[in-house]
C-alpha cells in the first residue's frame, strides 16, 4: 500500500444524550475538514449507552437533573446554560431544557444506520433534534423521518423499533470501549492506536489526526 491510498479510520463512541459528544463531534468534523488528508479519513460512530436507567418517557432535563442529582432547579438551569453557551460557540443549537429519555432505541437505530453507511449522520441528526429542544425528538415518527431522510427505508426503521434488534450490538460496543480504556464519552480512537478521552478543542483533534497519520504512513 502506498501513502496515497492509505486510509485512517476514526471511531467515536458516543451517546445521543451526551452534550460533549454533540460538541465533540462538531469539533472533530471541523478538524477533519481542515486536514490535508480529509478525503482519506473514514469516521465510524460507535454506541455507548451512558445510562440505561433514563426515564422511559421524555422528561425536561432540568427536572431530571434536580431529581437525579438533587440539584436546586436554579443550579441545574445554570449548568445547562453553561453547556448551551459552549455548544452555541460551535454553531450548534442547544435548548437548555431539552428532553431526556432512554436512548437504547436510538442507539439501536444508529447500528442500523451503520449497516447502511450513514450511522454518523443518523447520530448527529438525532443529537441535533434532541439538543435543539424538539419535544418529539424521541418519538418513533421523528426517528423514522430522520432515518428516511438519510435513505434508510421506513420499514427497516420500524422493524428495528418493534424488535430488540441491535441491542446486543449496543452492549458489545459498550464493552469494547471499556476494554479499550474508555471511562466515559465521547471516546475517540484513531487507527486503533491513538485514543482521545473526552471532547477536546478542535486544534487538539487536528493534532491527534496529524499524529495518527504519522503512524499510518510510517
Amino acid at each position: 500500500m502506498t501513502a496515497t491510498d492509505s486510509r485512517l479510520e476514526i471511531e467515536v463512541w458516543s451517546d445521543v444524550l451526551c452534550p460533549w459528544c454533540y460538541i465533540g463531534d462538531a469539533r472533530l468534523e471541523q478538524a477533519i475538514a481542515a486536514s490535508p488528508q480529509a478525503d482519506r479519513i473514514d469516521v465510524t460512530i460507535r454506541t455507548f449507552q451512558l445510562d440505561p436507567d433514563f426515564p422511559a418517557e421524555p422528561t425536561p432535563v432540568v427536572d431530571y437533573l434536580s431529581a437525579k442529582k438533587g440539584l436546586p432547579v436554579d443550579q441545574a438551569e445554570q449548568m445547562e446554560g453553561q453547556v448551551a453557551e459552549l455548544a452555541r460557540a460551535e454553531g450548534l443549537a442547544y435548548a437548555p431544557n431539552h428532553p431526556v429519555q432512554n436512548t437504547l432505541d436510538m442507539l439501536r437505530l444508529v447500528h442500523l444506520g451503520n449497516s447502511r453507511g450513514v450511522g454518523w449522520q443518523y447520530m448527529t441528526a438525532m443529537q441535533a433534534a434532541l439538543f435543539s429542544g424538539d419535544p418529539e425528538a424521541f418519538a418513533a415518527d421523528t426517528l423514522v423521518r430522520l432515518g428516511t431522510e438519510l435513505g434508510i427505508p421506513e420499514t427497516e426503521i420500524r422493524g428495528v423499533l418493534a424488535s430488540d434488534r441491535y441491542a446486543d450490538a449496543v452492549r458489545a460496543e459498550h464493552d469494547e470501549a471499556i476494554a479499550l480504556g474508555a471511562r466515559g464519552v465521547p471516546f475517540t480512537v484513531l487507527g486503533r492506536r491513538l485514543g482521545i478521552p473526552g471532547a477536546v478543542p478542535t486544534e487538539a483533534y487536528g493534532q491527534a489526526i496529524a499524529q495518527a497519520w504519522e503512524q499510518v504512513d510510517a
Binding site: 451517546d15 451526551c18 452534550p19 460533549w20 459528544c21 460538541i23 465533540g24 455507548f48 451512558l50 445510562d51 437525579k68 442529582k69 446554560g81 453553561q82 453547556v83 453557551e85 459552549l86 460557540a89 479499550l180 480504556g181 471511562r183 466515559g184 464519552v185 465521547p186 480512537v189 486503533r192 492506536r193 491513538l194 485514543g195 482521545i196 478521552p197 473526552g198 471532547a199 477536546v200 478543542p201 487538539a204 493534532q207 491527534a208 499524529q211
Partner: peptide, 29 residues
Amino acid sequence: LTFLAADDAAVCDPVTGVCAAPDDESEVG
C-alpha cells in the same frame, strides 16, 4: 492505545452521570 494527553477534555461519566467540563471551558459565560 496510546492516549492523547487531554487535560482540557470534557467527558460524560457513566458512573456519576455527570457531564463535566474542564475549568477553562466552564468559564465561558
